[in-house]
């Protein structure tokens, strides 16, 4: 059975460093300097923009100021998401050519690498289903969104799971364009998303969901996850990315 590295490395109050680590891992995996890796992490109140999104168009900066929400941009495409301590992030970095995602496009990556999270949520009792392009839904409501890329010699997939997030703040800090809402026949972002807590009708922690997804990944892909840490090289790359990219407003805000 194949073993993947499991890292719970996070900088909860430093979303810029969190994002730097997020990029450092697939770079190391792609260069065979680190094994295939699953990472779990949290951010405090943060908007994470997709790499192609315009900050002024997507972000309500007044609401961010009022709620203490930070804005950071990731290196993958897709839409803006809101993170808080009730939101669990996971990331899977595989060496390019891995049999699970060999000869596939990004849609195939999302489908296959969301499966572990889907299985993990189901094991907790959530009726989760992958919904193309990049969502996990529960009876039509989004509980998780994914993004990813194929670059640096790696296949990378990451997702955020709304476990017990504050949906009221989410609805305030993001400007959701009318064109996006129109075809879903709903009036606001809050009405088309849900949380694991709301679906289960009981208190559930991000740790519970993290543990479920660990099992979901192991059973879905027939792998064993082994606790590990970042290498010195990965930490060094992350620090460099922090200084040159994710710690800079030029990257985060000026598109």
């Amino acid at each position: 059975m194949e073993t993947w590295r499991l890292v719970d490395v996070e900088y909860r109050d430093d979303p810029f460093m969190n994002m730097s680590v997020e990029e450092a891992i697939p770079r190391a995996v792609g260069e065979s300097k680190a094994p295939n890796t699953v990472r779990f992490w949290h951010n405090s109140n943060t908007i994470v923009l997709g790499c192609f999104q315009s900050a002024p168009l997507e972000v309500n900066f007044d609401a961010c100021k009022e709620t203490g929400t930070t804005v950071v941009r990731r290196f993958t495409g897709g839409g803006a998401v809101y993170h808080d301590a009730g939101n669990l992030n996971y990331a899977i970095s595989l060496k390019k050519g891995h049999p699970l995602v060999q000869d596939t496009d990004l849609q195939g990556v999302f489908q296959r690498l969301s499966q572990g999270a889907v299985e993990g949520l189901r094991s907790l009792g959530v009726k989760a289903e992958f919904q193309p392009i990049n969502d996990i839904q529960v009876e039509g409501k989004k509980v998780s969104g994914a993004a990813g890329s194929i670059r640096w010699g790696a296949v990378f997939h990451h997702g955020c799971i709304l476990v017990a997030s504050d949906l009221a703040i989410l609805g305030r800090v993001l400007n959701v364009p009318q064109a996006k809402l129109a075809d879903r026949h709903v009036a606001s972002v809050q009405k088309r998303v849900t949380t694991v807590r709301d679906e289960l009708g009981k208190n559930v922690t991000t740790k519970d969901v993290r543990d479920g997804i660990v099992q979901g990944i192991e059973s879905s892909y027939n792998v064993r996850l082994e606790d590990g840490a970042l290498t010195k090289s990965e930490l060094s790359t992350a620090k460099e990315l922090y200084d040159t990219k994710y710690g800079k407003s030029a990257w985060n805000l000026e598109k």
């Binding site: 997709g50 192609f52 194929i150 598109k255």
Partner: peptide, 15 residues
């Protein structure tokens, strides 16, 4: 021209 949005495009630096 400035093009933004919530789409995916690989490679990302081609936009």
């Amino acid at each position: 021209a400035k093009i933004s949005g919530d789409f995916f495009l690989i490679p990302e630096d081609s936009l």
